[in-house]
Design a protein around this nucleic acid. Structure first.
Length: 494
RNA sequence: GGUCCCAUCGUCUAGUGGUUAGGACGCUGGCCUCUCACGCCGGAAACCAGGGUUCAACUCCCUGUGGGACUACCA
């Protein structure tokens, strides 16, 4: 049971209604998430509807991409493309006949009229109003045309759009997140509900579909707040009961303007390519501009659904903080089972030039286990495992400075000497070799370990040395020590 | 310009008349340690301003200021 504003409903129906005109934006993904959590939390239905009435901007590839991203995020829908329900079709381009019928009803009720103005003429009117410091809106030029005038305009080859006769009355509604919202009404001009090409305009199609699909709660971004007034007028014109509305805040960029491409990565696909886990992205989006009951910040999707509450959505815009996303991503990577992590790493390994199939599975698992804690994104993998591959082993420039100390060279030499004719399990060899080097050189602590680390891995930082050695094995370690010694004798005196 | 929305640390938030204003990211000091990372302990950091209302305002009201969204034959 959930409050709908006017009464209780036991099984709410919500929808996510994107246009397939580009990659799925994280802002839209967040709207989808809020709807999805709301439906799951209350045991209702989550409907996916494709709003593809703008033929020029919509593309099937975007739609495919959209469905794929939603699935990747784990936001499964109960009705929608690929999942028939009682209210299909779930693509607006397949519902054109329905909109045409409802247009007829409004024409019959004398609530709309054809408008023959061209886009150029409308633009002229707009500019004139702006110049005279008045609000740009449609002044109703075609509202009172008689039949003769209409025929004359049509005879010129003009195709009419249809405008709704906006009643000049205040509109008030209760927003589940924001409380009472009032629009005075005088500033709204007659708006187009059907375009001259016959396609329904957004506000018109939305109202019909939400009603026909029995949507009980419309949860969407604050950018739709002013559309709500227009939509409520249409609900009244049709005699439909409006759904409850909830307008959440927008995601902002660093400059506090609505997050957009110029702020950097904004699409789900981009974050996916950058090695973010869907668990992390979803968790972060659920935290942005909202909070969970109980105040927890790291939650599984099941826990998010449980702790979700629309009332906890905040009213002011939320700046997208990629640092916090990265923090969450690292947490989720660490919590992954190693086998699972390896699977998810696969595309990133290929991209970094590794061929996982050619590696010994147990050995590689050890490698991943050893570096798991250091990863922030999956895409980081290459720079953390390169030291385990002989063909990638390379002594970095800041590592070379370690060799400046005479004692460091002694450590490496003695460590290597011991290794050459040692045998037995890696752990024992390592421990013994370290002991030997310590005695021979007198070094300890970082003066002992750093030279070995650098000779073995080529870097001044990395996982614990004993683990590294165990993975490398004696032969590889010897090879590297010899190379380090060669480098030293060639480049340094003494 | 018009309409509408919003206002707690740098950022995300908790807070619903009486709190040392809490947590998280980031930053920072320390511990752990061969290093980095992880982990653990600590620190700096906020109620936009002015008026009311009240015994008492971050919290309620008004005004101002600031920010944002919308203002298409796009959704």
């Amino acid at each position: 049971m959930v409050w709908k504003g006017s009464r209780m409903v036991d099984k709410p129906r919500v929808r996510f209604a994107p246009s397939p005109t580009g990659e799925l934006h994280v802002g839209n993904a967040r709207t989808a998430l809020f709807n999805w959590m709301f439906a799951r939390h209350h045991g209702g239905s989550f409907v996916l509807r494709i709003e593809d009435t703008d033929e020029s901007r919509s593309a099937l590839s975007y739609q495919i991409n959209l469905l794929d991203d939603l699935k990747w995020l784990g936001l499964t829908w109960d009705e929608g493309p690929g999942k028939d329900g009682a209210y299909g079709s779930y693509k607006q381009s397949e519902r054109l006949g329905i909109y045409a019928d409802y247009l007829k009803k409004l024409i019959a009720a004398d609530l709309v009229y054809p408008c023959y103005c061209t886009e150029e003429e409308l633009e002229e009117e707009r500019q004139a109003l702006i110049l005279s410091k008045r609000m740009p809106r449609y002044m109703g030029k075609c509202r009172n045309l008689n039949d003769n005038q209409r025929e004359a305009l049509a005879a010129q080859g003009r195709k009419p759009s249809y405008r709704f006769k906006v009643p000049q009355v205040p509109i008030e509604f209760n927003d589940l997140i924001r409380g009472t919202i009032k629009f005075e009404g005088e500033s709204i001009g007659d708006f187009i509900i059907v375009r001259s090409n016959g396609m329904p305009a957004y506000n018109f199609a939305v109202v019909i579909d939400d009603h026909l699909m029995a949507i009980t709660h419309v949860v969407r971004g604050e950018d739709h707040l002013s559309n709500t007034a227009l939509q409520i007028m249409l609900y009244r014109a049709f005699g439909f009961e409006p759904p409850a509305f909830a307008h959440h805040c927008l995601i902002l960029g660093k400059d506090h303007a609505k997050l957009s491409k110029r702020h950097g990565s904004v699409s789900v696909g981009e974050f996916r390519k950058q090695g973010f886990l869907p668990e992390a992205l979803i968790n972060y989006l659920g935290l942005l501009g909202s909070s969970f009951t109980g105040g927890r910040e790291v939650l599984s999707q099941v826990e998010m659904v449980e702790a979700f509450s629309l009332e906890r959505a905040s009213k002011s815009g939320a700046v997208f903080d990629e640092e916090k996303l990265r923090w969450l991503n690292a947490i989720y990577i660490r919590s992954l089972a190693t086998d699972d992590l390896i699977m998810r790493l696969h595309p990133f390994l290929l991209e970094s030039g590794y061929l996982p199939e050619t590696l010994d599975p147990q050995w590689f698992k050890n490698v991943i286990e050893t570096v798991k804690d250091e990863l922030t994104t999956l895409a980081d993998i290459g720079e953390h495992i390169d030291l385990f591959f002989d063909d990638r082993y390379e002594i970095t420039s800041d590592a070379k400075q370690i060799f400046d100390a005479e004692n460091a060279r002694k450590v490496i030499r003695s460590f290597g000497e011991y290794l050459e004719h040692a045998s037995g399990p890696s752990q024992e060899i390592y421990a013994a070799a370290i002991k030997h080097a310590k005695e021979k050189s007198g070094g300890k602590g970082r003066n002992l370990f750093m030279p070995v680390r650098v000779a073995l891995t080529g870097k001044v930082k990395g996982p614990e040395l004993d683990k590294v050695f165990a993975i490398l094995g004696k032969d590889s370690a010897c090879k590297r020590l010899r190379r380090a010694n060669q480098w030293i004798s060639k480049n340094m005196k003494g």
